[in-house]
Design a protein around this nucleic acid. Structure first.
Lengths: 298, 298
DNA sequence: CATGATCATCGATATTTTCGATTGAGATGG
DNA sequence: CCATCTCAATCGAAAATATCGATGATCATG
């Protein structure tokens, strides 16, 4: 008996109430009066409830009609949201985007970009995963992700890379560590101490910037690594943005290493050239790279 | 170009995905395969997005289709909720119910009944207002409320009343009040002290149980009155359920009044006989009265 | 390779929706 | 009080839309 209401009919009722009458509603809907009348009657039949009080000269909502129209308007709103989502998909926005980020990079930059996307109301459901070193690429492949932001990656012809802002790394120790006060540190000095490193989350080989000592502690992220450094467990490379405060305060010291206690690298934003990014992907890349994407290979 | 989607079309898509194929979906919907095919194509046209990937032997949702169908299912759910609300209205449930409660009565009983109604998922929007003494009836009239629960009311032929569980009142004072230790309190004794009373929220006359002394403090509710009693400001009647704990603990004492320090009254649930209660009203009355409503006057 | 299932397509039919005109009832203004 | 206007229901005809039933192409399976 009572069935699902028809959106057009709800829309008709809404127009009648909003414009205060069938004739006006009809004009607004580009229909004739009887068509609107028909739709409202249909709605009443579908719901099995009298929605309009027709006893007076002008129609009025019944209490039931009021409650149901309120519900119906929410329904219309939701339908419109669905339509607008479709419009965005039709306009080239992808429904999903997966990005893998190397944990050595500042998360804040990425989060700021994601917030901007949210403010721009992109309909894309974005998934962000953090990995380390070659774990990034490995997950990129395994998950069929759309974008990865890496320190290094194994170049392939079907991948396209864009350079991001340089990141500087510093070789640090705790101020209480024996290496802290040594004026000129040699590789031999380093070998006598524990090196702290973030483990490659894929389980594969090590970073080129490691020293290959006998004792290496592997931590599962740079936050843990920083904590270990501060506790004086050993020495290790840290991205500068993560230890600036500590270097300044003196809780961490830069190792005066003869071979250079700093190095810079250029992170790369990589995506597949074969399956080009959707609009959200392009926008995200644009925000991260800091300008529109040039079309060049790795 | 992109328009509001049709619920039937969404339903068709849902059936196709759920049953895994057009033919099965058609069977489930009591249509033929081509009709379902038509509906899904219409939906795709309405949304301007390819929802199904038809390249394989079996159709699959595109990523866009997945996102949009998820949205669509929520839409269908909401539409069904609207239909079920209508079903309840059609079945005699009223959309709104206003009840006025005398603040002397235990709120908990009422709240328990309202919770039960909520659990029974009645669609009615219930408004509860608390007033005191004749303020209850006055608001009942002014707001055109459906139900009032009163201690006393001005009987009229078009009102129908049902007795509720008796409430007992106790004449109390603070244990530090001079009346607390007096063995036999006379009306004259009472007149020497301040009487505490809850003010009639309509501003009209006083309760029959007042003592008519010279000094009466009017409080704006029983919580305030209890506080005043505990502070030793005076004596006054309190419903027993509100002061049981204090009487037991000894912070409040029952006045040993010669004319009786207790009285009971029977609260009445009153509604209009002319405009009979809807289903929610009847159910609420039933819960409060503690049984089905008998059909008798005041 | 035969068979069966799946889905798109298409003409015919059935149903729904809209149109346009009319009617009766209430408001409006002289 | 009456002419006139607006409002909304009603109804037959026309238009639009949905469904049916049959066909054909494609793919899977044994």
């Amino acid at each position: 008996m009572i069935m699902r209401p028809d959106l057009d009919a709800i829309n008709a009722l809404d127009a009648v109430v909003r414009h205060g009458g069938f004739a006006r509603a009809a004009a607004a809907l580009n229909r004739v009066q009887s068509a609107v009348s028909y739709q409202v009657e249909k709605l009443e039949a579908q719901l099995g409830v009298a929605l309009l009080d027709r006893s007076g000269y002008r129609v009025r909502l019944t209490p039931e009609g009021e409650a149901l129209l309120a519900e119906g308007r929410r329904l219309l709103g939701q339908a419109d949201r669905m339509a607008s989502m479709a419009r965005q998909f039709a306009g080239g926005w992808e429904p999903r985007l997966t990005m893998i980020l190397d944990g050595i990079l500042p998360l804040e930059t990425t989060l700021r970009a994601l917030r901007t996307l949210a403010e721009e109301k992109v309909p894309t459901r974005i998934q962000l995963k953090v990995e380390y070193l070659s774990g990034v690429q490995s997950r990129f492949e395994k998950d069929g992700a759309d974008i990865m932001v890496v320190k290094d990656y194994e170049g392939r012809p079907d991948l396209e890379a864009h350079p991001l802002r340089e990141v500087e790394c510093v070789l640090c120790v705790s101020r209480r560590h024996p290496l802290a006060d040594r004026p000129r540190v040699t590789p031999r000095d380093l070998h006598e101490h524990v090196e702290l490193s973030v483990q490659d989350s894929s389980g594969r080989g090590d970073d080129e910037h490691m020293f290959g000592g006998d004792r290496v502690f592997y931590l599962d992220g740079f936050i843990a690594k920083k904590q270990a450094l501060r506790m004086g467990l050993g020495f290790g490379w840290m991205p500068r943005y993560l230890v600036n405060r500590e270097l300044h305060a003196g809780t961490l010291r830069e190792v005066r290493y003869a071979g250079g206690s700093r190095y810079r690298f250029t992170p790369l934003l990589v995506h597949r050239a074969t399956a080009p990014l959707g609009r959200t992907g392009r926008r995200l890349a644009e925000l991260l790279v800091g300008g529109p994407l040039a079309d060049h290979g790795a």
